[in-house]
Design a protein around this nucleic acid. Sequence first.
DNA 1: GTTTACATACAATCATGTTTGTATATAATA
DNA 2: TATTATATACAAACATGATTGTATGTAAAC
Lengths: 208, 208
Amino acid sequence: MARKTKEDAAITRQRIIDAAREVFAARGVSRTSIEHIASHAEVTRGAVYWHFKNKIELFYAMRDQAFLPFIDHIDAAALNEESEDPLSTIEQFFENTIQTLNHDAAIREIYEIMMVKCEYVDEFTAVLQQIVTNCHYFIEKLQLLYERAQQKGQLNIGLDPVALALDSHLFFSGLLHMWVKDSRAEGFRQQANTLIRQHIGLRKRAIP
Amino acid sequence: MARKTKEDAAITRQRIIDAAREVFAARGVSRTSIEHIASHAEVTRGAVYWHFKNKIELFYAMRDQAFLPFIDHIDAAALNEESEDPLSTIEQFFENTIQTLNHDAAIREIYEIMMVKCEYVDEFTAVLQQIVTNCHYFIEKLQLLYERAQQKGQLNIGLDPVALALDSHLFFSGLLHMWVKDSRAEGFRQQANTLIRQHIGLRKRAIP
DNA sequence: GTTTACATACAATCATGTTTGTATATAATA
DNA sequence: TATTATATACAAACATGATTGTATGTAAAC
């Protein structure tokens, strides 16, 4: 087949990434061969190997399409320094993430793949470490927000922003995991927002 | 080779399970071949296929060695009805689980495999569903304990046992995940007990 | 004309499930 | 109690298919 224009090539590249995501989600990363991805994207393995060195490079490309926006989302929440209501900022952040999972099938698939359809061994161990690094970054931002909430008197007395940040991170991590695992929408997915509000409610200063 | 006695066969079987666990932990479930397991157990594939139909049956056998005791542990905590201090029962349960992970390398490996070294697709999707079922069971027991804590006046006023149970489950689920992922003991593992106490502390009625 | 963007062909492993072979533990029988 | 029959606990061989990376070919864009 003939050479394509640069824009065409970019389209092919994205098609391959999309195909990879879909096949990963259906068959798991390990059981997915380059041929599976190629035929699903309606190209040959040659095209895949042209755009990506191997499977893990493709995996990284796919991951970035969900995680770069997520980082931006975290930063946006934390950077809003003039917010009058830091506690609500946290709550909104959690709810928005769940919203995104509900509405964006691609993002949802990427989370699913990374949480229950990928084995973090060999070349993939680095991915796990990057996730952990991101978690620490996320915890930092949560701590910042809780500190601001404390300054504004939103928190119950005696609560420590550091502890709250860690606790909220574990809560949210657990929530995402349950959300993904409960793929038949048996309840958890509908309950998510309620759970978030209750979680934040636990910290909120009682209105006298 | 010759036929072994029943006890010898049982030993061989357990050796194969142990070998499977070790190789799964090192290479991930998908990348592990029956031959890998066999040679690690110092038997041939024939022995493995004699004792187990295929890889997933072996996986189930391995899993049960960690999860059956875990269920018992949950039941033991919830059945202790005369406990004067249900909140501490919960706290102890969390801490004991972490203790087990710290001291029992086999259990630790099984958790690791199930959380980050296994892809839940095809024959493995059933495993995920079973995990979710177990989670719901766990949440029920937590709810029971929180109800007892409420009756004994241990909880802060206005807290709902149902909400607390879900929140604690998410916390614990997130904690286990972080514990497993933080394999280089960079902090999370040491912090676990502190986090548990703080989490429970959030619910505890302030001593007047 | 050269580089790009692929398709096609090649070579080399590797894994799976099954089948067959076999020595012996164990139960049945005499 | 000694003998025999059979099921057991594997090892070894077989047949088949899948996957990977690379190497080569090619037509069109630049």
